[in-house]
Amino acid sequence: MNKKQNGTAPEHIINEFDEELRNEMNEIWLLAGSTAPDVQDISPIEVENGLNALNTRLEISGDYIPAGDKIAGWIQNYSRVLVAAVALITLTTFFIFVPRTAVVPYGEMATLDLPDGSFIEMNSGSTVRYSRFYRFINRTIELNGEAFFTVADHGHPFIVKANGVSVEVTGTRFNVQSWADDPAGETIVSVEKGGVLFYPIEKRDQMVTLTAGESSRWNPQQLQPTAPETSNVEDATAWREFRFVFRNQALGSILRDLERRFNITIELEAHGVENSPLTAYYSQQVQLESVLDDICTVKGLRYTRTTTGYRIYRQVD
């Protein structure tokens, strides 16, 4: 390869140097060429030897189809297809029974369209799971988190199962909030339109019937969900418009909402305020720091930035 040994430096390199240096740099380029690795070109025989060695290795690793014998190759190909087909059928069988899962990352929201025309708006950090047979067998959705359901009326019941409790409906619009990490394990259902049945899973006889404008709560300590109470459903679904409505909500739970919405970590290093209730409204998209400002002002706390978010601590006078 004579390019390695001879010649002056290419113009685009030599032109980088001042005029008076160019001769010297050409000399450097030339002298450096003498240090080129000593290669004779790889001969065609070496290439074939290399290929043979390679094919031996591929054969050992069991992933080799001989190219030579067409019929043998065909049979081998065919047996591979058979094996693949069996594997595919087995996999598919398993696959069908594995439910579909939709996860919304922190800091984002998502809408999930279901095959029957129903759809689910999901709040940050929520997970929804449903069978691949959805619509053929039943319409059952498992929820962890918060979501607003708009259910198409097909006559068949639509059931949301969330952390120990069920909501059963036909066509309607409603919100379910049910975080597995909620300290009280509480689930709240709020109905915007139509009606729902709300009951602990497997205890349908304990059902509470909710109609539009009503909400009910349940936690694992209760036999039955609370009696329907009139509530402002708009508050419960404020998250859909990126608003926040905290009504007598525990500080710890508020901070978890903020963590999910803004995809950050908030450490609370102040004892005794975790469960202290707070009421606040933010009517539009709000900056995280202005929420933190308000919280800290009201509770006499301070906050500081950390690498992953914020730390809230008690103000020391």
């Binding site: 390869m1 290439v47 390679l54 190219a67």
Partner: peptide, 28 residues
């Protein structure tokens, strides 16, 4: 999975890639 194309690609690239690797390894 066309093995013949793979062989062709090997024949095409092997001399160049080996020369290239020698620049780093200085050992054929």
């Amino acid at each position: 999975s066309d093995k013949r194309a793979y062989d062709d690609f090997f024949r095409l690239m092997y001399p160049h890639l080996t020369g290239f690797a020698i620049t780093y390894m200085r050992d054929k």
